[in-house]
Write a protein that binds this DNA or RNA. Sequence first.
DNA 1: GCCCCGCACAAACGCCCGTTTGACATTCGC
DNA 2: GCGAATGTCAAACGGGCGTTTGTGCGGGGC
Lengths: 231, 231
Amino acid sequence: MREEKIARSKPKQQLLEAAERLFAERGFEAVSVRDITKLAGANVAAVNYHFGDRENLVLLVISRMVDPVTEERMARLESVEKKWSGKAAPVEEMLDALTRPLATAKRKSTLPETMHHRLLGRIFSLPPEIWPDLSAERMRQMTGRFMRALGKSLPTVPAEELVWRMHFTMGGMAHMLLLDALPDKPGKSQAAAVGLDAMIGRFIRFAAAGLREGVEVEETKPAGPQATFDF
Amino acid sequence: MREEKIARSKPKQQLLEAAERLFAERGFEAVSVRDITKLAGANVAAVNYHFGDRENLVLLVISRMVDPVTEERMARLESVEKKWSGKAAPVEEMLDALTRPLATAKRKSTLPETMHHRLLGRIFSLPPEIWPDLSAERMRQMTGRFMRALGKSLPTVPAEELVWRMHFTMGGMAHMLLLDALPDKPGKSQAAAVGLDAMIGRFIRFAAAGLREGVEVEETKPAGPQATFDF
DNA sequence: GCCCCGCACAAACGCCCGTTTGACATTCGC
DNA sequence: GCGAATGTCAAACGGGCGTTTGTGCGGGGC
C-alpha cells in the first residue's frame, strides 16, 4: 500500500507540475483548468477532484513557492542575529539573509531554475490579500522581524523612512526575479548568463547603499516606534 | 457641427473613463467589456463600435497613460543635460528627471490621483511586449538615453553593472506606484498621507545611493560600450 | 423632402470557462 | 470473494465572455 499510494499520487503531482509551469509562463489569470489538465494528460475533472477547485490549486502553488523562502529568511536572520549577539549587524548581512533564500530555499517544485524564479517573481508581485492567509501571515511576521533588525543596524534612519526604503527594496527584488528568465530580449543575455546568484550579489550592494543613504550625515530621532511594513 | 462633434464624443469619453477606473482598480485582465459598458451606462456593443475591439481599448489606455510620462522624461533629461552642457550631471538630477514625471506629466485621464498612480504602476509592471509598439519603442529610446547619460555621470561604474542597477531602480519605481493608493492596509496611512511627491523624493535618494554605490572605491574600466536596457 | 450617415440598442452568436454528474474500472480491507 | 473506497473518464451544465448583426432613430447636406 505504501508504494501503491505513492504510485497513486503521481497524477496529482503531474497536475501540480503542469500548473506551476503554466503559471510561471503565462501568469495565474491566463491559465485555465483545461490548459492544466491537458498538459498533465489528465481529465478535465482531475483538478476539481484532487484540489477541490481551481482557486485552491492556485493557493497551494503559492504557498509551496513562498513558504520555504519565508522560513529560510527567518532562519538566516536568526543566524545573523546570533552571530552578532544582539549588536547591530551589517546591513549587507541582513540583506543577504533576506535575498539569498530566493535562490537557495529548498524547492518543492521541480521547475527549471529560471521558471522557478519567474513564478516567484509573479507571486511577489501579487497583492498579499490573494495569498493564502497562512503564507501572508508568516510573510508579515518575517518582514516585521527584518524591519526591527534593520532599525537596530541603522539607528539614525527614522523608522518611517526605513519602511519606505524597505518597500523600494522589495519592489526591486520582485522585478529582479521577473527579469531572470526573460524570453529572448536584448539585455537578457547577461541575465541568463549571470544567473540569479550574481544578480543577488549586485542587488545586495545596490539596496544596502540605498538603505544606508544619509546615515553619516543626518541628525534624526534614534529609531522611533517601529512602523508596520506590509508587503 | 463643431459642438455637435464634441457632444457626440461624450459617450466615447465615458467609456474611456470607465475603462481606466476599472483597469486601475482590478487590473486589465479582470475587467470585462460588459463591466465597462455597464459602468459607462452604454450598450454592450459600444466598446466594439468606438474602439474596434477590447484589445484596442487596452492599448489606447496604456499609451494615454505612458506616453506623456515618457515625453516629459525625455524633455527633463534634455533640460538637465543642457544645464550641465555636456558635463556629467549629478545622479539625483537625472533620477529626478526620470521619476518626477510620474507625478507631474500631463494627464489625459480624469482619474483621481491615487487611481492614476495605481494604473501607471500596473502598466509598468506589464511586460513590454503587450504594450503598444509605439509606446514601447519610445520608452526604449528614453531608457537608452538615460542609460547613456547615467554612464557619463558614473564613469567608474561598469556599463553592465549600470544596467542591473537601472533595472532595480525601475522595479522599485513600479512598486512605489502600486503602493500609493493601497486600499486600507496597515502602512497605507503613511502612503496616503505623504502623497506621491514625497515618496518620489525619498525614492530618488534611495536609488541615487544605490546607483552610486562603490564609485569612490572601485577601479574599473571607464564606461565600456553602452549596454542595452530593456524594461 | 429625401437620403444618408453617425450612433445606440436589443438580441443573438459561438466559444471557453470552472464545475458537476454518473457510469465505469481498479484496488483495498476483511 | 465482496462491499467499500478510490480514481478516471466522457459528457453535460450554466454562465460569462468578446463580438456581430440588424433594426431604429435623429439631424444635416443637397
